[in-house]
Design a protein around this nucleic acid. Structure first.
Lengths: 236, 236
DNA sequence: AGGACCTTTTGGTACGAACCAAAAATGCCT
DNA sequence: AGGCATTTTTGGTTCGTACCAAAAGGTCCT
């Protein structure tokens, strides 16, 4: 049993490994057999399968069995960082820090971050690169009290990594609003596209495990280089 | 015990009711007490709590307890039709049928619908309206063999309704690719926007419960009137 | 053949017991 | 009072059993 400390995680990985050699809709061994094979109880197997089903990697039909899901495209809509997203697309992520400061919240930040008027807000602007070329312009607002001393960190490193390691802050959930925009002026120049080009604008509010607002970000993606893929289902 | 057939769903609803009078971060009774109160096993309570935690309505800390999360939007990304979508936004949906024909699949349809070259494909173009004004231009390709006689139906009615009632076809899952585009020419005119305006382009492949490709559609939404909202989470 | 009925397979629900691990509360010693 | 060790509380993991419910397959009668 490798490095994982809990059995259901280990079983999960064993099943994933087993699945890698299987075609979509191929049946997995039945639960009672998996339990015997891995020498765990059926409950533990079911715990592992539940997790995989939640992620859309397998599906179960009562009376028939459990099958590997078609997995057509990028899983279902899971929260991913820019870095993870680019790596999944086979691109090397990069960051250029453009601007950073701290000041009192303006009207928009007050509303989006649900802070008291005048609360300290951190403001970052970053250009995100894919294989060295501009992909996305980010405008980020953070409640300063959650990230004391953030300005002295290396802000060209992945933000979510800094959040986790220095502030024990993990963004668990996000509301995203996706719209289309015409790029003009500074942002068009930064992204190195002609004025009047199209961009995907993703406005995101991130929440930690307690439901606190941990981030408000607007990201302008070059429409010629980026699209947003997700699979949706009717029931869940 | 009300109408729900399984206990953990009933317990879930009891807990939700109990939570409705609680402030964010207020502690729930401990698991063993809930089990006693509702006269179920602790496992059943945990199953109910797991579901609520997955949805971000509560969070648990080992050694401390379980607490109600600050709840925001519960709208997860469900598969919705244009009509449902508009109704959710308080707009009256409408349809203008622009074009319909049937012919052999071109290269793109062959690939996206995964058909044999030359298979019969239905082609629809529709303008979707919100409160009578253009919102979206749809270009739809369907495998003709799944919808015999579709051309004789009233194609200004909701398509998913026709699919369900006449062909027993329910689209259960869809892959969507969202990107941004500049509108020019005919589509700009149809949507009644200046050439060079931005649009959200949603390319969707719909699958039925057996995983068959049931639809391939490209929808151009006016960027000034439409955006795409979803909440994503990290684990489940 | 074809349909009604039973049996088997397989995932879903529920129980209760035992133990683990993190956090908090208690108590003791100085 | 302050600090350290111990106990208690509380969610997390694992086990094994029993039974339910949907699907599939087989059986038997007509």
């Amino acid at each position: 049993m490798t490095t994982t400390r809990v059995k259901h995680e280990w079983v999960r990985e064993e099943i994933l490994q087993h699945m890698s050699g299987l075609a979509p809709d191929a049946p997995l061994p039945q639960e009672r057999e998996l339990a015997e094979r891995y020498e765990v109880s059926r409950s533990t197997v079911r715990q592992a399968l539940k997790g995989l089903a939640d992620e859309g990697r397998i599906y179960s039909v009562r009376g028939r069995g459990t099958f590997v899901a078609a997995q057509r495209i990028s899983k279902d809509s899971r929260l991913t960082s820019f870095s993870e997203d680019m790596q999944a697309r086979g691109l090397r992520p990069g960051t250029r820090l453009l601007h950073v400061d701290q000041g009192p919240a303006d009207a928009e930040a007050t509303e989006r971050l649900e802070l008291a008027p005048g609360s300290a807000v951190l403001h970052l602007e970053r250009l995100r690169l894919a294989d060295g070329f501009p992909m996305c312009f980010e405008d980020i607002r953070l409640p300063a009290h959650l990230y004391p001393g953030l300005l002295h960190q290396d802000l060209e490193r992945p933000l979510y990594g800094i959040f986790a390691s220095s502030y024990n802050m993990r963004i668990e959930r996000a509301e995203q609003k996706i719209s289309a925009q015409i790029l003009q002026g500074r942002i068009a120049d930064l992204l190195n596209v002609p004025h009047g080009s199209a961009a995907l604008l993703v406005v995101r509010r991130g929440f930690d495990e307690k439901g606190r607002i941990a981030e408000y970000a607007r990201s302008f993606y070059r429409a010629d280089r980026y699209d947003f893929e997700l699979t949706v289902s009717r029931s869940g």
